[in-house]
Design a protein around this nucleic acid. Structure first.
Lengths: 200, 200, 200, 200
DNA sequence: CATGAATGAGAGTTCATTCAT
DNA sequence: GATGAATGAACTCTCATTCAT
C-alpha cells in the first residue's frame, strides 16, 4: 500500500501531477476522484482537504500550472530581441517541445481538457487570454521574420495554428522511452518549421 | 405515444451528424443522449431503435465514418503513382484539410474522442490499425520524395506526426465562416509543409 | 422467418401458449412483449390487436386458462362420490400430475406468476377464490377418508399444502423427454401420497 | 451529504435480510433498489458501497447464504450414520422445515429466484452443483432405507423431488403467526413422508 | 392485421461531494 | 489530515405501449 518511498505527507503538487496523469489516460470526465486519490495513496474524500474546490479546482490548477511550465521559457526566448527572428523562432520551438515532452501528462491535459475548463464561466476569460497571448508570441516573431525579409510571406495566423497543432499533438502520441528523446524531437520540429519559413 | 406524423423519417446519418456535433461541443462524456436526440427532434430512448448499442455504438460509428470521409480522397491521391511525390503530397494535404474543414465536428471527434473509443477493447485494434495505415500513406509519399532527391532528409515518423498534428488541430480551432475558407486554409497548409520538405 | 407450417393467421391460443413458455423461461417481468411476439412470428405491437389489455391481460388469461386445464378433470373425479375416498384421491392426483406434465409451461406459470397477478387488485379476489376452492377439493376427500377410517388422522391443511407443493414443483423440474413419462410420474406420486395416508 | 450520525452502522447482513424480504414480496424484478434501501434506512445509491455488484450481487448472496442456512443442519443429520435411516430421514425433514419456516423470506427466494440467478452464467454452475449435492443427501438416506428393508421401494429421484417440492412450497404459503408453529409443521411433514416410505 | 418508429416513465448505476468519527 | 459511509443528482438504458402508414 505504500507506493511512495517516504510514506510521509502528500502535497498539492503530488496530487496535481497524479491528476494530470489520470486526466491524460481517462479524460477529465472519465477520471474519478477515487482514481486520482489512489495514485497518491489517499481516498477520494481526502482530496477535499487539499482542494476544497474539488475536481474543477484540480483541473484549473493542472491547466494553469501547465500553461506556466510550457510558456515560461518560450516567452523569455521570444522576447529576447537581441537575437535574430529565425534564431528566436528556432529556440522557442525547441524549448517548447522539450518542455512538452518533459511533461506529457500536462501537455495532454492542455490539449484535451482546455475545452472542459471552458464549460464554466469563471477563469474562462483569463485562461483564454493567457493562451492567446502565448500564441501571439509566436505570431510576433514570425511577423518579425517576414518584415526582416528572412521568412516567406505566409498567413501568420494559419501558420501559427499549424505550428501549435503539431506541438500540442505531442501530448497525444509522445511517450517517454521512445525511439527519440524529447530533445531530438525538439530539434527535428524546429528544423521543419524553420525550413517552412526560411527563404532559401 | 407514437409521434412524428410525417416529418420525414429520421435516419442513422442524421443522428450520427448530430452526435458528432454534440461531441464536438461537449465531449463524449459530457454529451447526453438527450442532447443528441434533441438535435434530431427525438427523445433519448428513441435513439436506441437506431443504435441498440447506445452511446458507445454512436461514437464507434461517428469515428469509423469520420475516418472514412477523411481518408478516402487522400488515399486515392497518394496511391496515384502517376504523379510526382511533391505533387501527390501537396494534393493530399489539400484534400485532407478541405475534408476536415468541411466536416469540423467529425474532425473534432477524431481528435478528442479517439481516446474514448480505446477505453473498450472491441474495435480498438481494427480502428487503430486503420489509423496507422492512413498515417503510413503520408510516410510513404514522403519517403518517395526523399529517395527521389526532391525532399530533404527528415525524420519521417516525426514529420508525419507534426503534419497530422497540424491538420487534426483544425478540429479544435476551425469554424465555418471565418476569415478564410477551408480551401484557402488547405492551400496555405499544403504550401507550408511542402516548403518544409522541398530542397531549394 | 416462417416457423409455423401454415403461415396463416395467428390466434389467441398460439400467443397464450407462447407466452406461457416465455414466462416459464424468463418470468413475467423478465419476459418482453417482443420475446412473446417473436415466438409467433409477430412484432410486439401486433400483440395488442389480440390482447388490448397488454402483458397483464396475457398473464391473466394464461393463468385463468391454466387453472381451468389443471382443475377440470380433478374436480370431476373428486366430486364423483360413487367412488371410495382413497380411489378418488389416487385418481385425482394422477389426473392432476398428468395434466401438469402435459402443460409444463402453464404449470410453471401457475407456480411462479400467481404472485405477479396479485400485484394488481382486479381479478385478485376471484382468482384466489378459485384456487382456494380447488385446494378445498383435496381437503374434502382427505377428510372423507379420515372420517371413513381408511386414512390416518393428519393435519389436513398442512397435508394438502404438502401435496400441492409436491405437485406444483413439477413446474420447476419436469421437462418433456425425461427418464419417465408424465403418466409414470403421476403413478408414483399418487402412490406416495396414498401410502402416506393409508392405515395399514 | 453524509448522514447516519450514530444510528449504528448498517451491515451487509441487514441488507441481505431486507433484500430477501423485498424479494419475497415483489420478486427480484419487481424489487427496486430503493425498496431494499428503504428497509434499512438508506438510499439506493448507498447500497453500492456494500454491494458493488448491485442487485445481482445481492441476489447471489441472498441465495448462497440461504442455501447455507437451510443446508447446514440437514447435512449434519443425514451424514450422521450412527442413526438408522428412518430416524435420519425424519430428523432431516424436521430440521429442514424448521429452518425454512424460521427464514421464510430466504425460503421464498430459494423457490422463486433461483431461476433468476440462472439467467447469468457466472455462479450458475457452482450454485446448481450445491443444490444437486444437497438433493443427493436426501436420495442417499432414502436408498439406505430401501436397502435396509425398512422403506418401500420407491422411485427415489421422483420421491425426493416430491419431498423437496412440499418443503420448498413453504416459502409460498407459510407466514409467521399462523395456526401452527414451524416446529409443529415440521413434525407433521416429517410424519407424512416417513409414513409414505415405511413398510408397515 | 401487421409493422416500425417513437414515446415516456422508470430503474439501475455512477460518482462528486459531505461529514462524523 | 484521513477515512468510510452516505447522499443525491444525473444519466444511460429498457421496454410496454401507441399509432400513422
Amino acid at each position: 500500500m505504500a507506493r511512495k518511498p517516504a510514506d510521509q505527507a502528500v502535497n498539492r503538487q503530488d496530487i496535481l501531477l497524479a491528476a494530470a496523469d489520470v486526466f491524460r489516460r481517462k479524460g477529465f470526465h472519465g477520471a474519478k476522484m477515487a482514481d486520482i486519490a489512489a495514485e497518491v495513496d489517499l481516498t477520494a474524500g481526502s482530496l477535499y482537504h487539499h482542494f476544497p474546490g474539488g475536481k474543477q479546482q484540480i483541473l484549473h490548477e493542472v491547466l494553469a500550472n501547465g500553461l506556466d511550465i510550457v510558456t515560461e521559457k518560450v516567452r523569455a526566448i521570444i522576447e529576447d530581441t537581441t537575437l535574430a527572428p529565425a534564431e528566436r523562432f528556432r529556440r522557442a520551438i525547441y524549448a517548447h517541445v522539450v518542455s512538452l515532452t518533459a511533461n506529457v501528462s500536462v501537455a495532454a491535459a492542455l490539449v484535451f481538457e482546455t475545452r472542459t475548463i471552458l464549460e464554466d464561466d469563471i477563469e474562462r476569460e483569463s485562461y483564454l487570454a493567457r493562451r492567446d497571448r502565448f500564441e501571439a508570441l509566436y505570431q510576433r516573431v514570425i511577423e518579425d521574420g517576414i518584415e526582416t525579409g528572412v521568412f516567406r510571406t505566409v498567413d501568420v495566423p494559419i501558420f501559427s495554428k499549424a505550428l501549435l497543432g503539431a506541438q500540442n499533438w505531442l501530448g497525444v502520441w509522445y511517450r517517454d522511452g521512445g525511439r527519440l528523446t524529447g530533445e531530438q524531437i525538439a530539434n527535428e520540429m524546429a528544423e521543419f518549421f524553420l525550413n517552412a519559413l526560411l527563404i532559401c
